[in-house]
């Protein structure tokens, strides 16, 4: 098929699809979500978990398994990317150094990003934010210096340890419920006083684990992809 003809046909099909989707969405009552489950959760989340951020309660308690899966997906993706790209970052690198502004700003930003990320992680059960958002910021904190100093070797060792233990902690907290004869991921340690930093039982712990895991994995992923574009950094893998 010629490129133009394909584009034209695709456009026609897309218009058709669009019209059908619009028809479907029209039939949905916007703003009147059925909330079969959502209503119940909104009503009892505080008693169940002690988290004031109900989204966090859903994420870590009601749908904690999804979150574990989500962490696992990042881990799978990182492992698979590692497998595909080979052990990057070991070789003596010689990338082009970044400009002064980036280097200065990176040094300046690093502690702030670190603090911000940590804050967002540990307050995830109280305010908007949480392990993923905070973890992403933490990853950025470590990635910005790398941008500033492309030649600096990445130490995957520490990241691996953090990654491994953070992930394991999540599963172990979940399995702790089984030991007590309950279900997987049962909330532990009591709900506490709503609004306090040390409340919501094991939720902050889970968020911490997620934050560290996501942070280290994203940082590792970005470092690998960045290194992959640079043949000198591919650790002997051609």
């Amino acid at each position: 098929m010629k490129g133009n003809a394909r584009a034209f046909a695709s456009a026609l099909f897309l218009i058709g699809l669009g019209l059908m989707l619009v028809t479907l969405f029209e039939a949905l009552p916007f703003g009147g979500a059925p909330m079969q489950v959502g209503q119940a959760i909104a009503g009892r989340a505080l008693e169940d978990t002690g988290a004031t951020n109900i989204v966090s309660a859903v994420l870590l308690a009601y749908r904690g398994l999804d979150t574990l899966g989500e962490v696992a997906i990042l881990f799978v993706a990182a492992t698979a990317a590692g497998l595909v790209l080979g052990g990057a970052g070991r070789a003596e690198a010689q990338g082009t150094p970044a400009g002064f502004i980036l280097r200065a700003a990176a040094a300046l930003l690093f502690p702030f990003l670190l603090v911000l990320g940590a804050y967002i992680v540990i307050h995830g059960h109280l305010t908007p934010g949480g392990g993923f958002q905070g973890g992403a910021i933490l990853a950025a904190a470590f990635f910005v210096p790398l941008l500033a100093h492309p030649a600096s070797p990445v130490n995957h060792g520490v990241a691996t340890v953090v990654e491994a233990f953070a992930g394991a902690v999540f599963v172990v907290i979940g399995l702790a419920g089984l030991v007590g004869g309950g279900a997987f991921l049962v909330p532990l340690l009591g709900a506490g006083t709503p609004g306090d930093l040390f409340s919501a039982g094991s939720l902050p712990l889970l968020y911490l684990a997620i934050g560290l895991k996501v942070g280290s994995e994203l940082a590792g992923l970005m470092a690998r992809i960045a290194a992959a574009g640079d043949p000198a950094r591919q650790g002997g893998k051609a």
């Binding site: 909330m35 109900i54 749908r63 989500e70 997906i73 990042l74 993706a77 595909v84």
Partner: peptide, 28 residues
């Protein structure tokens, strides 16, 4: 409804993972 918000968060992270792996494969 808090549930879709939690779902979207999960979906976004999944998307990130797939994107990262996809880019790695593109490089290769």
């Amino acid at each position: 409804d808090p549930v879709p918000q939690a779902l979207v968060l999960t979906a976004i992270v999944i998307g990130v993972g797939v994107l990262a792996l996809g880019l790695a494969l593109v490089v290769r």
